[in-house]
Design a protein around this nucleic acid. Sequence first.
DNA 1: AAGAGGCCCTGATAGC
DNA 2: TGCTATCAGGGCCTCT
Length: 287
Amino acid sequence: MPELPEVEIVRQSLDKKVKNKVIQKVLVKNRKLRFMIHSKFERHLYKKKIIKVDRFSKHLILIFEDTAGFIIHLGMSGTIHLYDMNKKNIFTNTSFYHSPILPKKHNHVEIKFDKLKFIYNDPRRFGYFLTFNNKTELKKKFSHFGPEPFSKSFNIKYITNYFKKKEKNIKNFLLDQKFVSGIGNIYASEILFISKINPTRKAKSLTQNECKKILLYSKLVLRNAIYRGGSSIRDFKNINGKMGSFQKDFKVYQRENLNCLKPKCKGIIKNKIISNRSSFFCSSCQK
DNA sequence: AAGAGGCCCTGATAGC
DNA sequence: TGCTATCAGGGCCTCT
């Protein structure tokens, strides 16, 4: 479900809630996720104090006092729910059921802090947990990932070099985490719309100016989405239960057959399946 | 080496 | 009401 902006919203909220809290108990109810949750997972977390919740790309990184920690990837349907035993409050980042009730089915991991319970729920099981013992190990986990859009190494030289001789379409590159990490199917369509680039264009065919647009608008679209609190597709909520509002800004995503929102453009938004993923674009103004 | 396609899952929704 | 088909925001693996 979540792309970089949604994960960032979860990170911000989660950081406030679990920072400086000590893990008292870990209960793994179902180890089957994309990768099996390691048998040492519980022991790895037990009695550890979380000093920070960080993020890289679509990964949450929970860091302990001793620089060890663990990574959470939410996959398509992973959600995090926090139950505050003092206030009897439930904080949830997403709710598929429009309900503030804690989910019953598909809870995989429960982490208990003093007066606070963390629940990881994932119906489709595309998410995963990974542990690391120190900074070097953490760095290694992300060594095969490309830069985030906000990174200095994601620059015009990097993009133009990368696209040389690349036959694959630009849409697939925006989704390719080895090229740039953090963009998913929604924002890929949005970035290409603002850049006025057709998703089916071969990467090598992009001009220097078009590469600049990819660079600029990748940053802009994601920043704006974070600012707006993430997207609310199927009721995305941040961990305080507040709805994100970026979906109000969608220019093409899920707007099939509607008018193009570019001023004076008479185009209609199309949905073309590219590599088995829907791609929304205006065939009139995206060249 | 790059690129295409299959596949891992459950649940919501649409159409009959 | 119940069946079936289709689709979903991710990304790994295998094959060519």
